[in-house]
């Protein structure tokens, strides 16, 4: 770099540019937080949905599955599983029958969830499937 472009100019771009874009990011975050209630339908987050999120977390479901595409890529996407499986009955039955006995197939552990926990998890997955995700995933297979 030539002598015309000095170190102090570089420093000013660093400080000025960073400050500007931090402020812009905060402004966009503010706007997003205003727009979100219509997209996440938070009015539907019942105590049961909240409990379901806890069940999701304390069993580290995200350690194998993705949820809205984030998590691990070892097992199917679950953001739309409620719709893919046509409701909660399949989900509950599936979780209860784990692990499968098929040799060599990827295994899901038996989590020994209570009926209450299973219902909460289903409620959480149902709520998740109704988030406005801009049309993602491309199809029902997730």
């Amino acid at each position: 770099m030539s002598e015309i472009f000095t170190k102090s100019m570089a420093r000013n771009i660093y400080y000025g540019g960073s400050a500007f874009f931090i402020l812009l990011f905060l402004a966009l975050t503010f706007d997003t937080s205003i727009a979100l209630p219509k997209r996440d339908h938070r009015e539907n987050i019942t105590p049961q949905v909240a409990q379901g999120k806890v069940v999701w977390e304390v069993n580290d479901c995200v350690g194998c599955h993705t949820l809205l595409g984030e998590g691990s890529y070892y097992a199917p996407e679950l953001g739309n599983v409620y719709k893919r499986r046509g409701g909660g009955a399949f989900i509950k039955a599936w979780i209860k029958m784990m692990p499968t006995n098929i040799p060599g197939r990827r295994k899901m552990p038996q989590f020994n969830l209570s009926e209450e926990e299973l219902d909460a998890l289903v409620a959480f997955l149902k709520w998740s499937s109704e988030i406005d995700t801009a049309g993602w995933p491309p199809n029902i297979e997730g």
Binding site: S18, L68, A134, P137
Partner: peptide
């Protein structure tokens, strides 16, 4: 200075690439 300026100028709003499909606008 130039490198980290470019990093933050692109990277802070680059966070947006994680906001496409999680419910954000």
């Amino acid at each position: 200075y130039v490198i980290i300026a470019m990093t933050l100028i692109t990277g802070i709003l680059g966070t947006g690439h994680h906001y496409y499909w999680i419910g954000a606008p």
